[in-house]
Design a protein around this nucleic acid. Sequence first.
DNA 1: CAATAGATCATCT
DNA 2: GATGATCTATTGC
Length: 183
Amino acid sequence: MLPRAFYARPAVEVARALLGKILMHRISRGATLAGRIVETEAYLGTGDRAAHSWRGATPRTQVLFGPPGHAYVYLIYGMHECLNIVAEPEGVAGCVLIRALEPVAGIEHGAANGPGKLTRAMRIERSFNGADLTRGALTVREPEAAWPEFEIGLSPRIGITHSADLPLRFFIRGNASVSRKQA
DNA sequence: CAATAGATCATCT
DNA sequence: GATGATCTATTGC
């Protein structure tokens, strides 16, 4: 289990450090869904026009200003949920959007290569909003066996209409589960 | 193969 | 009342 201190850093650092880590959801006794994080995006707090928190805290975004290591789950376009992990020390907004997973357990190949698809594959819903990822059913942990070395790619974020030119998207170069063709 | 449309609703103005 | 950190299907070259 990654310690809370792992998340109490700038969102950009956390986004890069999360690549290769394992997202695990314990559905029930003995049944787990798991995937390797292969694509992330950093969202800063105030000042990043693309971030939900850019204007300040609202009822929905208050979790982004709370303690790091918690989940921020929201509904987008009326039909897809997106999973974020709160970064930065408490009181400072910032988070990391998990964009794609490589299947490890209980996930069909290609079913988690996109923000909306991975929440469905992992059965993550809005009830997880505010959940503590350092304990509980949904956790992030170090891979059990070391993964082969990988190269980190950097590109602008996807699907946003503001600050669309900032290179805040991180992905494992050459990985087949990344949501788009290589940059 | 690239571009676009439609689905569908919580949140904020 | 408009908008959006998406996805899939369909239309158009």
